[in-house]
Amino acid sequence: MDIFLQQLINGLVLGSVYALVALGYTMVYGILELINFAHGEITMMGAMVALSVIGALALAAPGLPGVLVLGAGLVVAIPVCVALGLLIERVAYRPLRHAPRLAPLITAIGVSIILQNVAMLIWGKQYLPFPAILPQGRHTLYGASITDVQIAILLLATAIMLLLILMVQKTRLGRAMRATAQSRQVASLMGVDVNRVIAATFAIGSALAAVAGVMVSAYYGLAHYYMGFLLGLKAFSAAVLGGIGNLGGAMLGGLLLGLIESFGAGYIGDLTGGFLGSNYQDVFAFFVLIAVLVFRPSGLLGVRVVERA
């Protein structure tokens, strides 16, 4: 029971981070039918920028409460990622809006390689440790343990997702985003400045990515210039699992993927008699991706077929 509950907690925490990143993929896909493969790298940039700020602050003012320092990291990382997302959209995607579909996919991969290399030049190749500034509290719950960091990730991710749903359903920008996703041309006939809506979509997705990047680095206690690649692919798998283009799908897919990984890693040793260990955790996302593409290409909640992957 305690192992089951422990995997459940770990899976939900991991899954809510995947969900935040998956939302960025799915929102952009919903509007542009483009898979923004640079999105994982934006998450990485968020983690790296926040870590730099947090490290500098922890050195400069050792007495500051950890939550404040973390907040400062987020306050810097979010606008940096938003600016980066806007820049990428403007430079790498907008000029190719009417190009064949493969072209923006290739520039997306190009941008992600550029971002990785820029990060490597700035921060080096080594793993950056997350300074020990956060409360290290650990609570026991029916035999499983949950840390303060895990609780904070769950609460923050849930709050952000609820706010996003509210924004998309109730606000003027949200209506414009949904209209643009359904028909760019007709939305423009209603007076919607489609380019601004697309830019806003990238901005929101990048802000979510920044938060997710900080969460991941706080959770694992480190950040690395290459961390966005795997995280991005997993979140993309989560978006496909839920049905790409569908916000609820990205949330569901993210949580499910986190659970699948966590339970898979927890039980794979027992199931294979010790032949495979929990280091195979990363494999599950891609099993899921392949299985979804083979058996249900439109995803769990999706209506449209994935046209590019």
């Binding site: 028909s183 041309q185 007709v186 423009s188 006939l189 209603m190 400045d193």
Partner: peptide, 20 residues
């Protein structure tokens, strides 16, 4: 651009109706 034209009071109902 289309959204500017629309804001001036010229509204197109496109072929095929274009409802969302």
């Amino acid at each position: 651009p289309a959204h500017e034209v629309a804001r001036r009071g010229l509204t197109l109902v496109p072929e095929g109706r274009g409802v969302f």
